[in-house]
Design a binder for these strands. Structure first.
Lengths: 224, 224
DNA sequence: TTAGGGATGGTTGAGCTGAAGGACTTCCGT
DNA sequence: ACGGAAGTCCTTCAGCTCAACCATCCCTAA
């Protein structure tokens, strides 16, 4: 179980400041598969994840959903609602038993007024997140389902999260059938090994090769 | 030409504070079609747009590009590089003659230390932007090219920006042929009127109808 | 304890189709 | 009158949908 000091956004707070912050944190436990907040629900603060993995998902009218991201200990959810007093843009569902810390908006403002440097770290985090989504959006235009899945496997490979085929599909933005087919193909070619939900990367070079042609590394000759 | 006080992120600064900030701003003029910063180029600060429209674009190795957004007076570009000292994630190109104000990172930090409340407004802005991109990403998974184009037309209709077919395509994430075909179809059905690059919406209801089925309004019956 | 029966998740094949791409022509501004 | 943008037509194919089937896991009742 991580502590407040392990959150990157609080990395430059000292012991006493962390203690002050601690007072504003209310810990809540969830079982596996529980909803932390619903899409469209009014937001009153944000959440620190102390333990367990959580998925952030946007639902569509049709059956399809898009998993925006999967976050774990040391990360936050709902932090985009801090200032606009609006509602949650996606729903958050636990992938396993989870412990979060909830901080009410007002309490956090009170803290921020005294320790404004914290918001700088949060701005930095948000910037990175924004860039990540800009990249994902562009990736959707450029690359095929196979490439997106390969990139996803490379990305998840390190984190060790275990997801269902449907969840992988909802992350990569493909149908579950396509995800299944692609995974089977990669397995039969000896590039990955699958044991139920655990995907092991056997030949990273091959995955890289699938991904490479569209990597963000810019080909100088293409710069106008 | 807008002034500093017209920028939403500076909306709660007073006259004297704005004057102080003004000192850090260096104005630069660009002609139509010029690059303000290149994708991958190191970033030294950020830009305020005082006049003219600018497109932010990510390029892929293939011919395809993705227009991330189109911004105009009162908005900023490059503000995601403020804290991470990295490089630009996309390139910025003017759509018409443009006047920007460049603020060097160091100068802005100096200002922020004295006026920390500004960063709150900027965080708010960034949050909204992040949500917008999350929504766009989800939209890519859900909706057909026709729906995305319809939504884009509705969105641009109000702003009055004039774009080429290729640019419309690069915003919606479709091929230029598809964009052309869809526009022609909408025009022949009397839903929009096109005179060269100016798109006029004749029957908004019809566009809404194309878009509706996937609107972000949540169908309560779908909430688990 | 074991056998049935859901429910959930995974797999596979076949066919369809939306949208991309290529090749050309036409239009229009400079 | 030239070059780039816009438009048209036709072909092709990636990936979705439909449909059927299998594998697990968990619950309940005999």
């Amino acid at each position: 179980m991580v502590e407040l000091k392990d959150f990157r956004i609080f990395s430059d707070l000292k012991g006493k400041e962390l203690d002050k912050l601690q007072e504003a944190v209310r810990k809540i436990n969830y079982g596996r598969g529980e909803i932390i907040f619903q899409e469209g629900a009014p937001a009153f603060g944000f959440y620190l994840i102390f333990e367990g993995m959580v998925k952030l998902v946007k639902r569509s009218m049709r059956a399809k959903s898009q998993i925006l991201k999967i976050v774990g200990p040391g990360e936050t959810i709902g932090e985009t609602t801090l200032f606009d007093k609006g509602s949650h843009n996606a729903y958050a569902k636990t992938l396993e038993p989870v412990t979060v810390g909830f901080i009410e908006r007002g309490d956090f403002f009170y803290f921020l007024e005294r320790h404004p440097k914290t918001i700088f770290r949060m701005y930095e985090k948000l910037s990175q997140e924004l860039k990540a989504f800009q990249n994902k959006l562009a990736e959707r235009s450029y690359s095929s389902s196979k490439e997106r899945l390969a990139r996803l496997i490379l990305h998840l490979g390190k984190s060790g999260v275990e997801l269902s085929r449907a969840e992988l599909a909802e992350m990569a933005g493909v149908s579950s059938k396509t995800a299944i087919r692609t995974l089977s193909e990669l397995e039969s070619r000896g590039i990955i090994a699958i044991e139920s939900r655990r995907i092991k990367i056997l030949r990273e070079e091959y995955l890289q090769k699938i991904v490479e042609p569209f990597s963000t590394t810019l080909n100088p000759s293409l710069i106008i």
